[in-house]
């Protein structure tokens, strides 16, 4: 499974209506092997988990809109 590097991130506590049930959740801009960036949601985050710029995350799946979803 492809790995990506965290370029920046945030943990969302106040979500939109559509993501109400997921909060708090982790989102990031990550870099792929070729160096291009994209935005992703990273699943498997529990409140209090430490995350920092430069961490590696893994490909999990594509959502119904075609976005890449990652996991810790």
């Amino acid at each position: 499974m492809e790995e990506y590097k965290v370029y920046t991130y945030t943990i969302i506590n106040v979500p939109t209506n559509e993501f109400k049930d997921k909060a708090p959740y982790l989102m990031a801009i990550v870099t792929n092997k070729k160096g291009s960036k994209f935005m992703t949601r990273i699943e498997g985050y529990d409140e209090g988990d430490k995350i920092k710029i430069g961490d590696k995350v893994k490909y999990k799946e594509k959502d119904s809109l075609g976005n890449i979803i990652c996991k810790l």
Partner: peptide, 23 residues
């Protein structure tokens, strides 16, 4: 699709900017 559609909010977009800027 790739921001709102994946769970981003405006505070979260600028928070990502802030974390990178602080770094």
């Amino acid at each position: 699709i790739n921001e709102f559609g994946i769970g981003a909010t405006f505070p979260s977009l600028f928070a990502m900017i802030a974390n990178r800027y602080m770094y």
